[in-house]
Amino acid sequence: MEVVHSNQVVRPAAHVEQELETRKVFGAFVLFLFGMSVPYFLMINVRFIMAAGFVPSSADQTTGAIQAVLTLISALTAWAAIRAIRGGNTSAYRVNLGLTLVLGWVSTLMMAWEWWYHPFDAMSHYGETFLTTVGLVAVMNLSGLLTLWASRARAKRLGSDQTLVRGYRLAGMYWIFLAVAALVMYIELYFA
């Protein structure tokens, strides 16, 4: 098998490659989010087919509201983390990501609570859509928390090389996406 040595190869300048790489990664990320948003749309759809806009009066508005606020703050801290890493500040990135992780865990665990203690019949059409929608949000959140955790560990071990920053930003952006989706689902479940 022949291998041509790479030092003979004419390549575009490094910054052009990086530019292309960034476009590729972010382009694919948008497609990925597009796909990931489909299950949420499906749950909204199913909810309106099954239960129209009905919200039971027994719904626990306090839990829902606290959780929504935590989610909102976690999106803001994730955003702060992205800003920090774009400025090359790895430690601020890690701190903000750490905050996001804590908030994210708390709000996700609150969903477990919502599951456990649902003040309405789980077999009703509202009940079943509530439980599955919350379940969807929780499972997707877990994937986001895993990503954040990995990203934080990576930032600690590898620092903030220019090629790595892209990945750090993506982790934050993924969390923001999940937070926005969770907020939409919150509105849908508690108000619509």
Binding site: F34, V38, P39, L136
Partner: peptide
């Protein structure tokens, strides 16, 4: 990308 997540859900 659109329809596979749909059927999975």
């Amino acid at each position: 990308i659109i329809w596979l997540p749909e059927i999975q859900m």
